[in-house]
């Protein structure tokens, strides 16, 4: 089976001597929704830059749907749509021109380019802004414009480098929905993000990169299974005494109305409720203290 992306032994040393990638291996299956996570400076954008040929690799091999970047660069590029982290379109061009011109660069006839431009600009709610100069768009619209531009040649692999950075929650969720639909229609998606909740809800497989090395590469399910412990916060109706504690549990009083309790994987939450009831505490609501993936991410980086 041909993989959407195959990277082996990829190294990158910048001219200033900084070793951004220290020989990474990565495989992304066709049709996957793949998350590439890592702290700032870990090597995510360098990896994406090399795959999209904006950054020159020092050594290693990269192939996109079987097309080697070294030997079949044009074919490999034809498979990729890139949504970079920073806005990279002409401030003076209109939305329509940016999208239609990009189609032209991929060899799409004008008529077909215009049909597709209409399709994607409508889907991404930019149709009314098609004749507006890109500099007049809001941040969220600019992000959507970059997605429309990346999709115009209908790539088999869509790479998004922090696509929802600085985007409000409502818009972020509508973008998630759009990306999920694109993925369902058969486009492989690779996503880098700082919003771990985003990766958790969208992606099936995940790689974590740190200091130029892949420190974890597995399915999202398998990764989340590694969580042994979760912390729940209980919001209580009545006021808790200063020295409140829950015997038999790792708990601590957060404030007059909140208590947090750590739970080992497999433990029943009913026991906690029973203990709270015995103490005369009435629970108003309960929530996870932190994003599960976020906790795992931090612990993984701390370990490696």
């Amino acid at each position: 089976m041909t993989h959407a992306l195959e990277i082996s032994g990829l190294k990158k040393v910048y001219d200033n001597g900084f070793e951004a990638l220290k020989g990474i291996d990565l495989v992304v299956k066709e049709g996957d929704f793949f998350a590439l996570l890592g702290p700032n400076g870990a090597g995510k954008s360098t990896t994406i830059g090399i795959v999209s040929s904006l950054v020159k690799k020092t050594s290693g091999d990269v192939s996109v749907f079987g097309y080697s970047l070294d030997k079949q660069l044009a074919q490999a590029k034809q498979q990729i749509g890139l949504v970079p982290q920073e806005f990279n379109f002409s401030n003076f061009e209109a939305v329509w021109d940016i999208v239609v011109n990009q189609a032209g660069y991929y060899g799409l006839p004008r008529k077909e380019a215009e049909q597709r431009a209409e399709k994607y600009l409508r889907q991404l709610d930019l149709w009314d802004k098609r004749f507006v100069a890109s500099r007049m768009l809001s941040g969220g619209m600019k992000r959507r414009l970059m997605i429309a531009r990346a999709l115009i040649h209908e790539p088999r692999l869509l790479i998004l480098d922090e696509p929802t950075a600085g985007v409000d929650i409502e818009l972020r969720r509508s973008m998630w929905q759009f990306l999920t639909e694109i993925n369902r229609s058969g486009t492989t998606i690779i996503l880098t993000t700082h919003y771990l909740e985003e990766a958790e809800s969208l992606c099936r497989n995940i790689a974590i990169i740190d200091a130029g090395k892949i420190v974890e590469n597995t399915s999202m399910k398998a990764l989340l299974k590694q969580l042994h412990r979760e912390v729940f916060v209980f919001d209580c109706v009545n006021e808790l005494p200063e020295d409140f504690s829950l015997p038999g549990f790792d708990s601590s009083r957060m404030d007059a109305h909140c208590v947090e309790v750590a739970v080992e994987r497999g433990d029943s939450l009913n026991a906690i409720f029973t203990a709270l009831t015995e103490q005369g505490v009435e629970v108003a609501s309960m929530r996870n203290k932190a994003n599960r993936l976020e906790e795992l991410f931090v612990s993984l980086l701390a370990k490696k």
Binding site: L54, K77, Q78, P84, F87, N88, F89, S90, I98, Y105
Partner: peptide, 18 residues
């Protein structure tokens, strides 16, 4: 240079144009 400065030269660099 304008394309380089505003980074939209990348539109061309990622495309399959020779």
């Amino acid at each position: 240079f304008g394309a380089k400065f505003q980074r939209f030269v990348e539109e061309i660099l990622v495309s399959p144009m020779s």
